[in-house]
Design a protein around this nucleic acid. Structure first.
Lengths: 113, 113
DNA sequence: TTCCTCCTCAACCAAATGGTTGAGAACAAC
DNA sequence: GTTGTTCTCAACCATTTGGTTGAGGAGGAA
């Protein structure tokens, strides 16, 4: 929906550490310390990454005593794929039209608006 | 392929201005000034955005006198969709397995590695 | 109670990001 | 030639980002 959320989702996945977190969570929910173990950085740093994923709506967190298990929200991926597919399809169609055109005539691309 | 390029592609699309540029280019190649007109910022600023898209491999540029028409490269989108689809599918499968499991027994999630 | 684990908050820092202005190269047109 | 357009480069600035350390709250276990 909002351009803002789309921006946050793309920005969240632009970081390799956060993509690894996502790939871990795809295998099952996990706590902060569990998510931190594979990474060579402080727990606080991973906590910040998790927060970014949460703000983007890619991750939700529940409560289990002092633990806060993180859970991957797969639906948000659809936001991206829809956006991507739209422009990929347009670009491909345009490419095919151009291709067809080239087979007939030698067009002079009129650049003006 | 490289995690680096994937990071650059996601980062490039995290900005609304750059997404608008992509959506414009999906309709056809365009020069810098043409791309700048709709945006309330300097040509140099748009040039920087275009550079980011270029570095991510989303855009290529040709040469026409002093003009440098930008062209959208649709193939790069596949990089993203492949990455996304992979984890979306995993997460969905896991969800369905968990769902099936819940219908049989009451499982205690063993959090330890 | 005391102790240990999990997590968060705050302050700080260096580097990257997104914008600006000004100068100038390359080229077409007059 | 001069003039105007397109684009790039460099310097600068404010804000954001991605990390650190230190302190401390909440809660289970001894």
């Amino acid at each position: 929906m909002s351009a803002d959320q789309l921006s946050r989702v793309f920005a969240a996945l632009a970081d390799p550490t956060r993509r690894e977190i996502v790939s871990t969570l795809a295998l099952g929910d996990a706590t902060l310390v569990e998510l931190s173990e594979p990474h060579d950085m402080s727990v606080q740093a991973v906590s910040k990454h998790l927060r970014v994923l949460e703000d983007a709506g890619l991750v939700t967190r529940s409560r289990d005593a002092q633990r806060r298990p993180a859970h991957l929200e797969a639906e948000v991926f659809d936001l991206m794929t829809k956006w991507i597919e739209r422009y990929r399809r347009e670009a491909e169609q345009r490419y095919q039209r151009l291709d067809a055109l080239l087979k007939e005539t030698k067009p002079k691309r009129g650049a003006k608006r």
